[in-house]
Nucleic acid binder design. Structure first.
Length: 432
RNA sequence: UCCUCGGUAGCUCAAUUGGCAGAGCGCGCGGCUGUUAACCGCGAUGUUCUAGGUCCGAGUCCUAGCCGAGGAGCCA
């Protein structure tokens, strides 16, 4: 009996008889010969069936195969220059597992609405397959870099009693009769964890109930948040640029084939190496005034067009640091030389993809944090444990959060984050 | 939440001034020994988003609603 192998391993089995199992991506009938394109998740191979080489019942059986029918095919693997990928399976026998009728996604064009309604099937398409493979590699790079650089994974709760930052809209759920909220960040818990472990990260789903309807927003997205004790703003930017560069280079090294499928021009990614340019918020405002936004006022937040102008001024991702204190979360440390700005920084991805990282140095000062909680009208009782961290061995510390889907969208140069995750959750969309 | 555009065959779209509902793909049947979104011939396929209205006549015009896309704000 022929061994069952994966398509990714065909090169090692050239000249031998093997069995492949998977789905029919496409079939072409030439009369006395047929071409099948078989995919099994690990790859795609062309199979060829000659009428003169197989029993009539086998030739008739392959004739019935429709797009996405599931099969086990046994044949001889051989190198074949005319076949896509350079290898071909000369079919000897076919076991039909199931005939698929009227598969909705044909090899022609489809609209976004139709594809999203059939997301559970769309995932089988080459482009979506490639994106998911790239995403998995990005996540592995994230974990590898942090694990190899002394960060301990400590995941933070998803069910939380109160808003972490008190700003964004949260999903409310019922927790034994009391309201609870789906986490929008693990950061405050990270700050507790670093006092035990020094350097930590959490990596999990994050939920925002904002009514955002853009190509950059999901209501459920994945975020990795490193945080460490005794870190400063400059330390954070040093770490983040190493981290992001490692992620990008890992994808270029291990997912070149996928980048080709999605037609990503990787030349710009190849240049992503430290150091990244760093520009203060105030200098960024001056830049905007020169580049088409003469009326931009210091203290305003950047919108999408502003971020695009700033990031397109550099060929690397760019840090914008020292934002106005009032614009950022209550826990950001003030700049000692100018308390109007805080020790925060966002990383704007190259090629106009916008913010992929937000972070900064956290205030270690108990009195200041207490006043900030009051100023932001947050319920002090919910933050007593957080304030404890400033009573018992408070230290300067920093951290950041990287949005996985936006990072994937940038690296893969996608039009919309909905293609970066298998089943995107968006404004008023939760099917399938 | 606001602004703009759209909804016609399974899919992608067309339909002139308001005048017989169309094409390509896919599907069915037939042909073809090297196809790469194959090609050639034949064939079937409609609640024109919904509910009202104007009109001899509405896919087309009017009113309301539903759904989708793009953008804004906010964010990762």
């Amino acid at each position: 009996m022929a061994p069952h192998i994966l398509i990714q391993d065909i090169a090692a089995h050239t000249g031998t008889e093997v069995t492949l199992q998977g789905w029919i991506a496409d079939r072409t009938d030439k009369g006395k010969l047929q071409f099948l394109r078989l995919r099994d998740g690990s790859g795609v191979i062309q199979a060829v069936v000659f009428q003169k080489d197989v029993p009539p019942e086998t030739f008739d059986a392959t004739r019935t195969l429709t797009q996405e029918s599931s099969v086990r095919i046994t044949g001889i693997l051989r190198a074949e220059a005319r076949a896509p990928g350079g290898f071909e399976l000369a079919v000897k026998s076919v076991e039909v597992v199931q005939i698929a009728l009227d598969y909705p996604i044909t090899p022609k064009e489809h609209g976004v609405e139709f594809l999203m309604e059939h997301r559970h099937l769309w995932l089988r398409s080459p482009r979506q397959h490639a994106i998911l493979r790239a995403c998995a590699r990005i996540i592995k790079a994230i974990r590898d870099w942090l694990d190899n650089n002394g960060y301990t994974l400590v995941d933070t709760p998803i069910l939380t009693p109160a808003a972490v930052e008190g700003t964004t809209t949260l999903f409310e759920t019922d927790y034994f009769g009391a309201p609870a909220y789906l986490a929008q960040s693990g950061q405050l818990y990270n700050e507790a964890n670093i006092m035990a472990l020094g350097k930590v990260y959490c990596f999990g789903p994050t939920f925002r109930a904002e009514k955002s309807k853009t190509r950059r927003h999901l209501t459920e997205f994945w975020m990795v948040e490193p945080e460490w004790a005794f870190g400063t703003l400059d330390d954070y930017m040093d770490v983040a640029e190493q981290f992001v560069s490692y992620i990008v280079q890992s994808v270029l090294q291990d997912r070149a084939a996928e980048m080709k499928v999605i037609e990503r021009d990787v030349t710009k990614l190849a240049n992503i190496k430290p150091p990244f340019p760093r520009i203060s918020y105030s200098d960024a405002v001056d830049l905007l005034k020169q580049k088409g936004f003469p009326d931009f006022v210091w203290g305003d937040d950047f919108g999408a067009p502003h971020e695009t102008v700033i990031s397109e001024s550099f060929d690397q991702p760019v840090f914008v640091h020292r934002y106005p204190t009032d614009m950022k979360a209550f826990y950001m440390e003030r700049d000692a030389s100018n308390p109007k700005v805080c020790l925060s920084a966002d990383l704007l991805a190259a090629e106009g993809y916008g913010e992929i990282i937000g972070g900064g140095q956290r205030s270690a000062d108990l009195e200041y944090l207490a006043s900030q909680i009051e100023k932001h009208k947050l319920p002090r009782a919910a933050y007593e444990w957080y304030l404890d961290l400033r009573k018992y061995g408070s230290v300067p510390h920093c951290g950041f959060g990287l949005g996985v889907e936006r990072t994937v969208a940038w690296i893969c140069k996608l039009d919309h984050v909905r293609e970066t995750i298998a089943f995107p959750r968006m404004l008023e969309k939760i099917y399938p």
